[in-house]
Nucleic acid binder design. Structure first.
Lengths: 301, 301
DNA sequence: CATATCTATGAATCATATTCATGTCTCATG
DNA sequence: CATGAGACATGAATATGATTCATAGATATG
């Protein structure tokens, strides 16, 4: 007779108990409310006892729920401690790691998250190469890994998915007032800045926008440098179409405001690519693990 | 930064550490050696440190492995205690539960496992109905649930899979000697007992036998009562084709020996069927959970 | 050295967790 | 009271990831 009770559901239950709301828990874990609901149904079903007291305003734990929560607290504490312990005993990498990334990604969000990794690996030298031609160098062994969002995975490459991009159209609050833009915005007559070669971005953005909100675009202003473009937008030159991660700071500070609510992530994922080889990708693995440990929210999606 | 480290893999790692062999661990958990291997690769990959010291004869844990093992020990103890605790606080069922099952299943293995359930629910009356027409009574609400292996699930029925049948062809050791049967056996000239209407069993058996071992069947003796048939076989009347669960005891005692090695389970599963209704299947759920908590090995597959 | 007993590995398959698209219920508001 | 917003539930479709299958390699054993 075996009654497992491992299940990922327990982690969900644990956070749910902490935050006290399905919706909030879902956000915290980077999944949908539906997922949390399903998971809890299943868990309660499995243990055969109601764990949650769903009330209209907020939810409580039942007596049993509380006991289970305490068990989780303890158990997860031990496990997480062990995990951290293992982290520390991880063979520190030495030598050189050549990382490639797209310009947009590498010049913004990536750098914001590299510090802890660098601190943890003082003996590791890292070269960053920001470019839009990553596949070539990667295949030629001029790079150890590349972070990108290419579509067709080559059979020679290993792909480790990281997160899905979310696009935003945003502008300064002043610009929004001046152009009387609603949310969601109809962009008629409103200049929109984007990368010159990035009609693709516009298409992918449209795909992620709900049918009801599809905007009309009249004026499209091309800029070929992303920081310059963001600058221009912050100066009030127009609205801006960019991956969300590249303007996270501006959004947080309120320098820019989004003109569409709740845009979903795109299909394709930002992934880490590396050549398939038999052994010895220790440094690569280290970075991969680190980046994977970051939640989608930290990448702005 | 979140480094989960929940994962079913940990349970696998834990048992692996206890039994000290991939193969044995797999058997214990009722899965294949391959699964265990994959799981451990993934786990080591995830924590970034080797946990196992694979040596030629037997395997040891590395230093890190040992620490992780201890953490698991603690954590799982807590969780399992909590699980047991919840078990006890499960609302005991009262009233009557009408259980249907096939004659073969109900008259053998099922009864061997019901005792603990009955003990845990002293206020529950259970009616067992052993029959081959279970669907009718179930739909007519003459049964609360049915344990069977029907093929086409009706949309009105909920199906909870329990285990997959394994068939065996077996005979007494004496019979085997007398007929000079090898393993795997070529059954030419050897009388094989089976249920009268159960040509279906033979077909399903053949499907599960590897091509190399396909036997030739000459004489087929029909009996319409399974216990009588088993009796006949034990008396040396012939070989016997039956679901493995129905002769578990005889095989364990050595009264019967299997004539084919390592027959795989069939496609279809024995499942619990019940009518789909909105609420209040508490008693059904209780039994379902209990039966599900039994491992496949306990059903002889 | 042939055989038996392990573990590893890649591709195919299957199970399950998650999403999507809804539905229901409750509460607050004009 | 309608009406809408917010929170959870639910069924079908889908994506993710765990497991098997079919092998191969490696090491001991008679």
């Amino acid at each position: 007779m075996d009654a497992p009770l491992d299940l990922p559901q327990l982690r969900t239950f644990y956070t749910l108990a902490q935050v006290g709301s399905f919706t909030a828990c879902a956000r915290r874990l980077g999944r949908t409310q539906s997922a949390v609901s399903h998971a809890m149904t299943k868990l309660e079903d499995l243990v055969g006892v109601p764990l949650l007291d769903r009330r209209n305003r907020g939810l409580r734990l039942t007596e049993e729920g509380r006991r289970l929560y305490q068990a989780c607290e303890q158990a997860f504490a031990t496990l997480d401690a062990a995990a951290e312990d293992l982290q520390r005993h991880q063979t520190q990498a030495r030598g050189r790691l050549r990382v490639g990334a797209t310009v947009e990604f590498g010049s913004s969000i990536l750098m914001r998250h590299m510090q802890p990794f660098l601190a943890a690996n003082p003996d590791l030298e890292i070269d960053f190469t920001l470019s839009h031609d990553l596949l070539g160098p990667l295949l030629r062994d001029d790079l150890d890994l590349a972070i990108d969002c290419v579509e067709h995975a080559l059979p020679a490459l290993k792909k480790v998915p990281l997160f899905r991009e979310t696009y935003v159209v945003a502008c300064t609050p002043a610009f929004r007032r001046a152009h009387r833009l609603r949310v969601p915005a109809d962009l008629s007559g409103c200049p929109v800045l984007s990368l010159d070669k990035a009609g693709a971005w516009w298409n992918r953005f449209l795909m992620a926008v709900p049918d009801r909100q599809q905007p009309h675009l009249d004026r499209f202003i091309a800029v070929n440098h992303i920081r310059a473009m963001i600058h221009a937008a912050v100066e009030g030159m127009g609205a801006l179409l960019v991956p969300r991660y590249s303007v996270l700071e501006e959004l947080e500070r309120g320098d820019l405001v989004a003109l569409f609510p709740a845009i979903r992530p795109t299909e394709d994922r930002f992934s880490i690519y590396q050549k398939k080889v038999k052994a010895g990708q220790e440094k690569q693995k280290l970075l991969t693990r680190y980046l994977q440990s970051l939640s989608p929210a930290e990448f702005g999606s």
